[in-house]
């Protein structure tokens, strides 16, 4: 087990009159190689949750373990934890600061105390994986296009060679092509490098397509924790939480209601297509009988 949260609570302004409970009694286990989608309304506590994973926030009560060790125990090296658990914040391009792209990506490895040679090697590898062409290495990060900036910033986290990559709405503000590119990049990292991915997203369609496991955070608690298919079968409860299921789920339910025997757990276009085609031919053969 990679990350484990035991009865974690987080309260903002604990001990003052402005106490706000952000997370309440979270028990959670994250295993190697998972692709976890995290959904929840703004203010549900999901941003707090992901910052607990790499020790940026300290739980008010409860424990956080990484690879079996309590990260808030005395003498635990939090800085090295952060290289194992990479966190990409929303609009990560806002953190770029160096005079050229390569140097910026080298910032993480440099903080790890690697030699300049190793740093450069890591940075180049990360940039390659993020799909930034070599001609841009010496360019100022501020001259890149929006999508490129985003990918360069992600490379900055990848260069630390993390085992877990947490991304907070990485596609926000990108155009459709940029969104697809980035999601495919993340999927690729998981498939090829075996990185455990935790993806916070507002797009049900995206998590349905990529995640193997889905966490629904609602009012500081984990409301659902299972496969996307199972979570989206509770779409009416999701709606009560201000969330929704992918469009496809609704179409499948509509069709089922009208008497077409489709698979209502389909959540992606390709699944839906297969199921509808099958149901259509079945429907015809039934009615001809």
């Amino acid at each position: 087990m990679l990350i484990e949260l035991k009865n974690v609570c987080y309260t903002y302004g604990a001990g003052t009159v402005y106490e706000v409970s952000a997370l309440d009694g979270i028990d959670l286990q994250i295993h190697e190689g998972e692709f976890i989608g995290v959904i929840g309304q703004t203010g549900s506590g999901k941003s707090t949750l992901i910052q607990l994973f790499n020790g940026l926030m300290k739980p008010t009560t409860g424990q956080v373990f990484f690879a079996g060790k309590d990260i808030w125990a005395d003498g635990y090296d939090l800085r090295s934890l952060r290289t194992h658990v990479g966190l990409v914040f929303q609009y990560p391009e806002n953190q770029l600061f160096e005079s050229d792209v390569l140097k910026d990506v080298m910032f993480g490895p440099k903080n790890q105390g690697l030699t300049p040679g190793e740093c450069e090697e890591r940075a180049k590898e990360a940039l390659r994986q993020s799909g930034i062409a070599e001609e841009f290495y010496s360019v100022s990060p501020f001259e890149l296009s929006g999508g490129q900036k985003r990918r360069a910033a992600i490379a900055g986290v990848l260069a630390m060679d993390p085992e877990v990559l947490i991304l907070d709405e990485p596609t926000a503000g990108l155009d459709p092509a940029g969104r697809d590119e980035l999601l495919n990049l993340i999927k690729h990292l998981r498939d090829k490098r075996g990185i455990t991915v935790i993806l916070v997203s507002h797009s049900m369609e995206d998590v349905a397509q990529y995640a193997t496991r889905l966490l629904v955070v609602h009012e500081g608690k984990i409301a659902f924790d299972s496969s996307p298919k199972q979570v989206f079968s509770h779409y009416r409860e999701l709606e009560k939480m201000g969330l929704a299921a992918p469009q496809i789920t609704y179409i499948m339910h509509d069709l089922r209601e009208r008497g077409l025997r489709v698979d209502v757990t389909a959540t992606t276009v390709s699944e839906a297509k297969r199921s509808i085609l099958m149901a259509l031919s079945e429907h015809r053969s039934l009615s001809t009988d």
Binding site: R258, L280, H283
Partner: peptide, 11 residues
């Protein structure tokens, strides 16, 4: 959905 149902019933 409306367009699919006649397609289903066309059989």
């Amino acid at each position: 959905v409306d367009a699919l149902m006649p397609a289903a019933d066309s059989g």
